[in-house]
Each structure stands twice: as C-alpha cells, then as structure tokens.
Amino acid sequence: MSAAHGGYYLPDPTKWPTITSMGLFLLALGFILKLHHLPPGPWLMIAGAVIIVLMLCAWFGQVAVESEAGRYDAQVDTSFRMGMGWFIVSEVMFFGAFFAALFYTRVLSVPWIAGEELLWPGFEATWPSAGPAGATFIGPDSHDVGPGQFSTIGAFGIPLLNTVILLVSSVTLTIAHWALKKNQRGALNFWLFVTVVLGAAFMYFQVGEYMEAYNHLGLTLGSGVYGATFFMLTGFHGFHVTVGAITLAVILVRCLRGHFKPDEHFGFEGAAWYWHFVDTVWVGLFIFVYIL
C-alpha cells in the first residue's frame, strides 16, 4: 500500500469469479437434467460442484493470504463488513419468504379451504394440516401412524435440546472472540473448536430427527403444507448451519495457523455474524414451527 498515492486498494484481474459462474451453470444444468432423468445430469452436477468448491477455496485462500500479508487497509475492512452485513440481510429476506408461506397457509389458506363446504365437505381447519386430500394429523410424536396419517416432532424433545445447543454455541463463539481480542490463542482455539463441535452436534440430531420423521412419523415433504413448510424451513436452516459450521471450521484452521490479530480479524467476525444469524433464525423456527 502506498499512502503517497491515496492508498486505495485495487485487486489485479482475477479468474476465480468467471470460472465459478461457469461451475454454477454446470451445476444448475446438471441438476435440471437429473430432475428429468437425463443421463449426463449427475456428471454435470459433479463437475459444476467440483469447479465451484475449487474456485471458492482458491478465491477465499487468496483473500486470506492477502489479508495476512497486510494488504488490506481500514477502508477495505469496512467494505468487507458492509458486504457481509448486507448479504445477511438478503438471507433474512430469503427466510422471510418461507416464514411468510408458513403464516399464510396457517392463518389464511387452510381456514379458507375449510370454508369451502361444497368443494371439500367435512374438512376442518386445524394445524398441523396436510390439506383436505392429504394425510390426517394424529398428534405429535406418535409412532402408531397408519396409512393416510402423519405425526409431527414435538417441540420439547430433541428440538429443545438443539435450541440449547445452538444458543450455547453462540456463547462459546463469543468467548472465543473475547479470547482473540485479548490474544489468548489457546482459549481462542479451544472455544472455537467447541463451537464447531456444537454445530456438528446440532446437525447430527437434526438428521436423526429427519430420519425419525420419514421412517416412523409419516412426516415427509409430501405431507401437505405442514410437511412442505416444516422441511423447507428447517431444511434451509440446516443447510445454513452446515455452511456456517464449515466456515467456522475453516476459521479454526486459520486460527491454528496463527492467522488474525487482536485488532484485525474480519474473517473471524464475518463467520461469527453468520453463525449468530443462523442461530437467530433457529429461535424463530423453534417458536413458530415447533412450539406454536
């Protein structure tokens, strides 16, 4: 950086984004072909996914190297902060669409369908509901589901445990952050490791819940609007937890290599923001999907 020339940071031409776009194209095209059972589909998907992963690794790797080399000034740091912050806002809006679908079906469309006595005689508006032509709800956590019936996952078993796990993980992450600020590298590594383990534990329980739902409760993506909203909300959340945990794991590796300084560690903070966001979404899910 040369302060005499204003000190603005500009990166050189880069090939990562263009090739990542191509990978995304292949992934999307392959997925569509697979949906229609056309043979090259899975191969294109694998090729696209490999390209995306390699390019993102290279891209983020380069950014990490540049960051450690001290190439970024305060202005670049602010740009990164704004970028990450507004990216999280866009994610909030994405989840907003699915929460809106949950509220709309629950408050409006199911009661409206029940009001159509001529179209769907005998259909009562209840929640959970799989609609007039869907399976019947027989109460939560019931393993006696016959054909045409479904049960749901009660709030105060594993979901409550998962809530505690995620909330605790936010605390451990904050402790790690404090340790980084005080330059206590041992504590940083330990508490960050604990956070990643808690994230993995959450996913372990979540996958177990999905298997329980599919194998014993008769609750699937096809269980009407309840199944649809349940699996889309928790599924996208689970995907975000996975991404967040992988990000934190990468940050952990960087911490172990001695990256980040007590006063300069946006990579850590960006990942932490994302983790807290994922955590907050879960609280919303726990309240509106599981409890209410």
Partner: peptide, 27 residues
C-alpha cells in the same frame, strides 16, 4: 431473495411433492 424463495417453492412443488401452491394439500 423473496423471488428466490418463491421460485424455490415452485421447484419443490414441481419435483419434490410439496403442496405450497396446491389446495388439496392445504396450500
């Protein structure tokens, strides 16, 4: 992102059996 959510629901309604936009399933 809201549009992305909408078309994602369309995709799952088309291929994965969800009933967001199907009154028979409560959508």
């Amino acid at each position: 992102p809201v549009l992305a959510g909408a078309v994602t629901m369309l995709l799952t309604d088309r291929h994965f059996g969800t009933a967001f936009f199907d009154p028979a399933g409560g959508g």
